[in-house]
Amino acid sequence: MSYWMKSLLLLLFLFAAGVQADPLQKSFSDWQLTCNNAAFCVARSFPGDNGLVMTLSRHAGVDDRPLLRIDYGSAYTGELPGASLQDNLLLDQRLLKPDLKHWSVEPHHLATSNPIAIDEFLAQTLDADTLQLTWQAKAAVSLHGMKAALLLMDEVQGRVNGLSAWVKRGDRVVWDVPPQPALPRLPAPLPQPAPLTHDEASGLIDYGTWRINTDSCSLDPMRREVSVAPLTDDKALLLVSCETGAYNVIDLAFEVTRSQPYVARGLTLTLPFTPASRSDNQLELVNAEYDASSGFLYTFSKGRGLGDCGIATRWQFDGNEFVLAEYAEEKTCDAWHSSDDWPTLWVSQSETAPQSR
């Protein structure tokens, strides 16, 4: 085969590999790996409620921007008392003295984005069992599953048998990796609608409370809550609480004309992928909030009351339906991070917003 044919096939391979990535979230012993549709992957140890967690993240493509972190203390605990990490880490019961020349060093936080420093650290830890504190034995990171999680990360990003792989390294040059998949583009935001008048809001709330079809709701009509917001200059979004639990409320959503006679159309949320935690791609509107100024609809499904696990999504209205902008999920309930820091399975690229009125 001629050189130019080989080059063409390589380019076609890289293009095809970079078109899309299937989101995933998977556990390996005591590690969890999450990769989104841009093939950005995050692997972290769990449980985090013992105080100490190790995290590795990496983007797809040549510009991989790797990051390795070791943190003691979470978003829920805040800073914890105790000596600094750099002098008090045990690796399989032996004092670990990493070369921290290219690390950011704080008393309870160590981080590096230097590829050589990360490689050196992984060379010591990939086949080890435990990383823990000298003065707090229960503050430990189990390393069981880290190697398998990083191997799958390498596979997702097309690094296996290459010099950039973290686990199964070969002699393929560093730049010989698929590019980052292109992000899906959101539709251009609609012009900001005129606010609802008092009469419009009152009429729509009355309609949503007593006359819209909510036969599938288990919640007693007297206990249902109705909220309304402008979608466009002639349509409104009506949210009706349908089921409620200790910390989650499930709504039904309707697109309704802003003037009488009211005409309603049910709206659903359809994911462009099927998460591993679900059997289908239809998402309920849990704890839904709509921002009329941006056209974004937010949902936040708590796995438990603390809010340290669950599903958070953001959707944009395109004039006919809501299109997924972002999907984040944390299935491990271990009091490590809040929804602002949950790993993403879906991200998108926004179009330029139109000017407000």
Score class of each variant (00 low, 15 high):
residue 197 T to I: 04
residue 194 A to Y: 00
residue 209 T to E: 11
residue 229 A to D: 15
residue 157 Q to C: 06
residue 218 S to L: 14
residue 200 E to D: 11
residue 150 L to Y: 07
residue 227 S to C: 01
residue 203 G to N: 13
residue 172 R to M: 07
residue 203 G to V: 00
residue 207 Y to L: 04
residue 158 G to D: 03
residue 225 E to I: 08
residue 207 Y to G: 02
residue 198 H to S: 13
residue 188 A to P: 10
residue 203 G to L: 05
residue 235 K to C: 00
residue 185 R to C: 01
residue 169 R to Y: 00
residue 185 R to T: 13
residue 191 P to G: 08
residue 166 W to C: 07
residue 182 A to Q: 14
residue 213 N to H: 05
residue 226 V to L: 04
residue 224 R to K: 08
residue 229 A to N: 13
residue 161 N to H: 12
residue 225 E to W: 01
residue 226 V to K: 05
residue 198 H to N: 08
residue 183 L to H: 07
residue 186 L to W: 02
residue 202 S to P: 03
residue 150 L to Q: 09
residue 246 A to C: 00
residue 156 V to E: 09
residue 249 V to D: 08
residue 201 A to K: 15
residue 164 S to T: 12
residue 189 P to R: 08
residue 199 D to A: 14
residue 190 L to K: 04
residue 169 R to A: 03
residue 242 C to F: 01
residue 224 R to D: 03
residue 192 Q to L: 10
residue 192 Q to K: 14
residue 256 V to S: 00
residue 229 A to H: 13
residue 184 P to T: 03
residue 252 L to R: 12
residue 254 F to N: 05
residue 153 M to R: 10
residue 195 P to Q: 04
residue 247 Y to K: 06
residue 249 V to N: 11
residue 247 Y to P: 10
residue 159 R to C: 02
residue 225 E to S: 12
residue 235 K to T: 15
residue 214 T to C: 04
residue 223 R to F: 11
residue 153 M to A: 15
residue 146 M to T: 09
residue 186 L to P: 04
residue 193 P to W: 01
residue 240 V to W: 06
residue 242 C to G: 07
residue 151 L to H: 13
residue 176 D to F: 10
residue 259 S to R: 15
residue 230 P to A: 12
residue 151 L to T: 10
residue 185 R to Y: 04
residue 191 P to V: 08
residue 196 L to W: 10
residue 233 D to N: 15
residue 161 N to G: 04
residue 166 W to V: 07
residue 192 Q to F: 01
residue 164 S to E: 07
residue 211 R to W: 05
residue 203 G to P: 02
residue 195 P to C: 02
residue 204 L to Y: 06
residue 169 R to I: 02
residue 219 L to V: 07
residue 189 P to N: 08
residue 162 G to N: 03
residue 180 Q to K: 15
residue 164 S to I: 05
residue 206 D to S: 11
residue 183 L to W: 04
residue 150 L to D: 07
residue 174 V to R: 13
residue 255 E to P: 10
residue 196 L to Y: 09
residue 236 A to I: 10
residue 231 L to F: 03
residue 186 L to G: 01
residue 250 I to Q: 14
residue 147 K to C: 08
residue 242 C to D: 05
residue 211 R to K: 13
residue 251 D to T: 06
residue 232 T to W: 05
residue 256 V to F: 02
residue 244 T to H: 08
residue 227 S to D: 12
residue 236 A to G: 13
